[in-house]
Simulated scan of single mutants.
Amino acid sequence: MGTIVTFGEIMLRLAPEGYYRFVQADSFGASYGGGEANVAVSLANFGLDAAFVTKLPKHEIGQAAVNSLRQFGVDTSKIARGGNRVGIYFLEKGASQRPSKVIYDRAGSAIATAEPGDFDWKTIFAGVSWFHFTGITPALGDAAAAITLEACRIAKAGGITVSCDLNYRKNLWPRDKASEVMGRLMPFVDVCIANEEDASDVFGIHAKNSDINSGKINREGYQEVAKVLTDRFGFKKVAITLRESISANDNNWAAMLYTDDTAYFSKKYPVHIVDRVGGGDSFGAGLIYGTLQGYSPQETVEFAVAASCLKHAIEGDFNQVSVEEVEKLAGGDASGRVQR
Rank of each mutant, 00 (worst) to 15 (best):
V191Y: 14
V191C: 13
C192N: 09
I193E: 12
N195Q: 10
N195I: 04
N195D: 12
D198C: 06
D198M: 04
S200C: 12
S200T: 12
D201P: 02
F203G: 06
F203A: 07
G204I: 04
A207D: 01
A207N: 02
K208N: 14
N209C: 05
S210N: 05
S210H: 05
D211H: 12
G215D: 00
G215R: 11
N218K: 03
E220M: 11
G221E: 01
G221T: 05
Q223L: 09
Q223N: 12
E224H: 12
E224P: 00
V225T: 04
V225A: 03
K227M: 08
V228N: 11
V228K: 15
T230E: 09
T230R: 10
F233Q: 02
F233I: 10
G234P: 12
G234E: 08
F235S: 03
K236S: 15
K237G: 00
V238Y: 03
V238D: 07
I240C: 07
I240D: 07
I240R: 07
L242G: 08
R243C: 10
S245N: 14
S247T: 15
S247A: 08
S247K: 07
S247V: 11
A248P: 05
D250E: 14
N251H: 15
W253H: 09
W253G: 01
A254Y: 08
M256I: 14
T259D: 07
T259I: 02
T259P: 06
D261P: 02
T262N: 14
T262I: 13
T262Y: 08
A263R: 09
A263P: 06
Y264R: 11
Y264G: 09
S266D: 10
K268N: 14
K268C: 14
Y269P: 03
H272K: 14
V274R: 07
R276W: 04
V277D: 03
G278Q: 00
G278K: 05
G278E: 01
G280P: 06
G280Y: 04
D281W: 05
D281R: 11
F283H: 13
G284A: 11
G284K: 08
A285T: 06
G286V: 05
Y289K: 10
G290E: 04
G290L: 00
L292W: 08
L292Q: 15
Y295N: 15
S296Q: 11
V301S: 02
F303S: 07
V305L: 01
V305N: 07
A307M: 08
A307N: 15
C309Y: 15
L310D: 01
L310H: 06
K311L: 01
I314V: 09
I314N: 02
E315P: 00
E315K: 10
D317A: 02
D317R: 02
F318L: 04
